[in-house]
Simulated scan of single mutants.
Amino acid sequence: MKDIGERDILAPGDIEALVLDVFLRAGLTADSAAPVARSIRHAETAGLRRLGLGLVPHMVEHLRCGRVNAAATPHMVDSGPAALTVEADGGFPCPAVAICLETLCNRALTHGIAVLSVRNAYPVGAGRLFLDHCAARGLVGFANIAGLVARAAPNGSMVLEIEQRQLGLSQSSPMMQSRVVPDRGTGRTVPFEGPLGPAFRLHHSFVAVRPSLWHHAPDPPVAVQNSGIAVSPVLLEKIINA
């Protein structure tokens, strides 16, 4: 038995392989599971623990109880020369973004800016996959999402809740609007944790911008060193057995 505080050290590639296997066993197709696993790896290497491996047990639970569509088939529609729309079909947002990420970036390089709207999707966790891909193409990524935030519960534990969030934007920016759909019949925001509650049908907006549109572009993110990531054995066991 491991002592309290002891950690397993997993390389980012091992984390991605572990998560891929877990979601394949939970019923996702390889096309959907692969971008989800990449997204979890990017969150972990950015140090966003609750939105990385910490999110996986919730995601698997929502797959098994039907709050997210395991058989979702996202499809892209051209909305304009620099605008794309993806119908996520009630699935995770990562596969929906992945099918048009290259197209989005190419159009941003051509037109200076390109916008992606993702409809009827699960909440966005870290969003690092989108931001890191934009940075790799020499672009700056912005997003307005129905995202997840950790808050203290009355009993002192930390819980995840859905909230409109901005990535790469100031909180006061009027640019773009995501939509946090209310729970029908209650008027409250759709609950996140647990198997009870309606299916997730949230909307997200993503923007890729060519830095030359500004006089000064933000510095690119510092690369994360592949030195391994410490993971709690309790969380690791929970993920493996999800």
Rank of each mutant, 00 (worst) to 15 (best):
H62R: 08
S212P: 05
I239V: 15
S79T: 04
F206V: 00
H42P: 01
G90K: 00
V68D: 02
A46M: 10
R128C: 13
V86Q: 01
D78K: 14
A135M: 08
P220D: 09
L48N: 11
P57T: 01
M1G: 14
L236Y: 07
V207D: 00
I99L: 15
E163Q: 15
A242D: 09
A17I: 03
P220A: 11
E102I: 08
V159N: 02
H58E: 15
E44G: 02
L51G: 06
N241C: 09
N155T: 08
S205F: 13
Q164E: 15
R7N: 10
H75Q: 14
R49A: 14
C134T: 00
G147V: 02
A150L: 06
V190S: 14
R67K: 13
P198Y: 06
D183I: 04
H75M: 14
A242F: 09
N144D: 13
P195L: 05
F92A: 03
A72V: 00
I239T: 00
N144Q: 12
L101A: 11
A30W: 12
A33W: 13
N106S: 13
N69H: 13
R188L: 13
H216P: 03
L24Q: 10
T73P: 07
S232V: 02
Q166H: 14
V115P: 01
A98G: 02
A26R: 05
A11I: 02
E6G: 05
Q171H: 12
S157K: 11
G187E: 06
T29I: 06
S39T: 02
R210S: 11
H111P: 07
A83M: 15
V86Y: 04
R38H: 12
S212K: 06
A70C: 08
E16N: 07
V222D: 12
L116R: 00
A135F: 07
T45K: 03
V19E: 01
P81T: 05
A143H: 03
Q177T: 10
N226L: 09
A217N: 01
C65W: 06
D183R: 07
D14P: 02
C105D: 04
